[in-house]
Amino acid sequence: MSSFRFEVVTQERTVVSTDVEYVVLPGLDGKFGILADHVPIMAALQIGIVEFGPRKGRRRKIALGGGFAEMHDNKLVVLANTAELAEEIDILRAQRAKERAERRLAEKRDDLDFTRAQIALQKALLRLEVADGE
């Protein structure tokens, strides 16, 4: 199986830049996979898990905080709001973020930014899920 270049870039750094044989992305309408020689595509992504790797070998995971992906000339670039490799995730921090978000949602204060707290919770749960597989 042929491989292609895969990069995940955030505002602060390049999280991953490697050759892979497949990538699975969290699209707005659900997960979808990308293989080498895919037609040029631009896709909006939601908060979710990015999986990638060689076909036979270790699969790696990234916790993605939303963003979008662009593939052309056999190069797939994901521009992300936030992105963390599974092995980089600080489980204790994610745990704390989860508890904080849950507490905030439970308090039901008037000035609560509901969507924001929900997104925070979603991200924390995702990070825990991704880190769990490590």
Binding site: G27, L28, D29, F32, V39, P40, I41, M42, A43, A44, L45, G66, G67, F68, E70, H72
Partner: peptide, 13 residues
């Protein structure tokens, strides 16, 4: 390009 799910939704992101 193929836009997934649509151009507008890509732009919104």
């Amino acid at each position: 390009y193929l836009y997934e799910p649509s151009v507008n939704e890509v732009l919104e992101v």
